[in-house]
Amino acid sequence: MKFSILVNEGPYTHQASDTAYQFAKAVLAKGHEIFRIFYYHDGVNNATRLTTPPQDDRNIVARWSKLAEEHKLDMVVCVAAAQRRGIVDEGEMKRNGKDATNLAPGFRISGLGQLIEAGIQSDRLVVFGD
């Protein structure tokens, strides 16, 4: 089956992001396909490479990046939500005159159309939020 996943909460404050990650791993372990993972609302904060959790805690952002690399996942951060919350890639830095980028490896910034397309293309779009 072809799945897409919507992550609506940021890391650490809510469990939604952890559950989405565990779900993604389970989907892949069962041999299903993940068409896309989309990050919206505070979910875009899953994509900042500047996060530094304590050493004895899970690194949620690095964990997503690793999963993306291992499984060639398409992980998309909503551009409007990212702009509000300061998640920046090279293109956004130039476009908005910022002095830094913080997008973690494996993520890309794009529009909400990517979420709708995920809904259209996937057999199931599973939402993780509060």
């Binding site: 529009g111 909400l112 159309g113 979420l115 709708i116």
Partner: peptide, 19 residues
């Protein structure tokens, strides 16, 4: 919270995709 406003943005995009 921002959910209502950002949900409305999703509604408009879904409509633009003629869903």
């Amino acid at each position: 919270t921002i959910y209502a406003w950002e949900a409305l943005e999703v509604v408009l995009i879904a409509a633009a995709f003629e869903q």
